[in-house]
Nucleic acid binder design. Sequence first.
DNA 1: CGATTTTTGAGGTGCGCACATCAATTGTTG
DNA 2: CAACAATTGATGTGCGCACCTCAAAAATCG
Lengths: 340, 340
Amino acid sequence: MRPTAKDLAEAAGLSLATVDRVLNDRPNVSQKAVRKVNETIEKIGFIRNPAAVSLARNKSYRFRFLLPTTGDLYLAELIHRVEDARAVMKGDLIDLDVVQIPVDDPHKVAKYLSEVDENEFDGIALMAPESPQVRDAIGRLIERGIKFVQFLSGQEKLPTADFVGVDNFAAGATAAKIVGRFVGGKAGKVLIVAETMQSLDSIQRRFGFDNVINSQFPHLQCLPSVETYGDERRAAQILRRILERNQDVVSIYVLSSEARIPLEGAAAYTDLRPLTVVVHERTPFSESGLRDEHIDAVIAQDPGHAVRSAIRIMRARADAREPHAGQDKIRIEVLLKENL
Amino acid sequence: MRPTAKDLAEAAGLSLATVDRVLNDRPNVSQKAVRKVNETIEKIGFIRNPAAVSLARNKSYRFRFLLPTTGDLYLAELIHRVEDARAVMKGDLIDLDVVQIPVDDPHKVAKYLSEVDENEFDGIALMAPESPQVRDAIGRLIERGIKFVQFLSGQEKLPTADFVGVDNFAAGATAAKIVGRFVGGKAGKVLIVAETMQSLDSIQRRFGFDNVINSQFPHLQCLPSVETYGDERRAAQILRRILERNQDVVSIYVLSSEARIPLEGAAAYTDLRPLTVVVHERTPFSESGLRDEHIDAVIAQDPGHAVRSAIRIMRARADAREPHAGQDKIRIEVLLKENL
DNA sequence: CGATTTTTGAGGTGCGCACATCAATTGTTG
DNA sequence: CAACAATTGATGTGCGCACCTCAAAAATCG
């Protein structure tokens, strides 16, 4: 039988009350008692029964995901994953919800964060670009005891907050390696498309991409980033113009999470198959693109994994535990038609 | 406040005893009562508090991983992951252990399985090739109420058992796609190395590999599989001979989990850098190979993920629940130098 | 109809721990 | 040494549920 707190008390030659004081960091315990208890824990291999703890505390966790209002398929996927997790975690006394806010307005984001009630939420996961205002608001949030996770964005990592997501520099580098090797020695230009280059994510990906192309594939030339601003017509027009002017484009790299908008625009003008097309994030569009070979590779971060990871981290922090690092690292996945 | 079983009973107009009978599938309940309770569960959104269930049942789980005795770095990694999980899961009343057995002897495996005491273990995860004998032994194990997982091998999926691992056909196809596109249009031969071609895993990977090469990269020619039998000297000799005879080898594909043995042999004879080298499984060797560019890509399945997945499945089965499909699918990962 | 079976209700116990109260013991200080 | 503070012990309650027993009520049957 596995030792209980009572066994611990007996083995330590102390009362259950003192053991309780040590285990739960209550005041009025001598250093000697603390040491004795901890030694005995090691000695007899005592482990708190988490079910009993949870039951006795009868505490529940309320976490909120703050996601952008605008976004296409990947955002939808993300929301879907949170809903999934919501259903699963409900049993474990974890209440989740999603609120969408205009993340591109730092002022509004900061205002929203400042209005979060610490009696209503134990943790917030925010997907928004960073800015000084937002950073300050996050700091105040944390001071009020609300656990915070930077979710898939804002990689200027705050020392006080946890981050869930990939290394975007490495993600861009990975895309570049695929492009470079898939193109196959041919010289030519690489067309790079982003929704916007304002965000740190885009900048880092582009930086990682250029870095690898320039050092390992000097026969390829990266064109300046095209920004779509999420506008389909605009995207179609600009891409058409650029492809007309640059007949030697051999590859397209879409570094935003929204591949649909630029690629549908480009496909209207030219056949994508001869080009090496690499995009980010698995969506119904990118999946079908892989299947019918309009897209050669997808660089992805599993949204379900990201959501679960954010939840695990907030829960661990709420329990004043360290998160388990290993399981919570988000991998940069490379998806081909063959390993979908 | 979230509804308890008592609330459920009141809302359903039944006693707690009857509600308990329904919730735990006890005998002597009318169909009417069952229906009424289930309806009320939906209506008030009752969810059993898993902590209370766990505490009241006070049940623990004992699972054993049966792994091969022989194996190199990947096996070591796997054992390490089980040990990690062991420490983490200990808190959740899950006892894990690892036993290594000679998996290539179906007779011994079957004998071992038949001797597993159902009072001592709730679940077994076995990493071993299939054979009729083993299959029968697994069947008897399951009949005795022990939950069983086919762990990273034996993909002739038993309808009665769960499987954790990748689709090896797809894994081979993925490797082929990488080889084909990385080679870059050059014609030549692909050297394929396995520890043994006896195992179903190897056969499926090879089949998937050939399939993609033949259909998409006809300018490449697959050589017959070389078997190392885990013997370094043998491997070095054979590979040297083959590479001497085939000066037009452009790529090496190692389809077993042990890349070290063949690649160290080949590297002794020739420089691997000009070749496109693709191997399976992330190990210290394959990682450093990626870093210094002796290896171009690694096709991997995360061992930590696989271990956790196997545990989750055994636990779900032991609780007579269905496992959560999504989280437990093992991805075929593509690792490059850039996304390690 | 009574005799039997099936179904229900009422109630208790314990799982391992958190949290609270109050008394008893020890240590400290002037 | 008394007066006080710091520490410890003894004990109780409740978290939500599983599991058990015994009696009562309802349904079924010959």
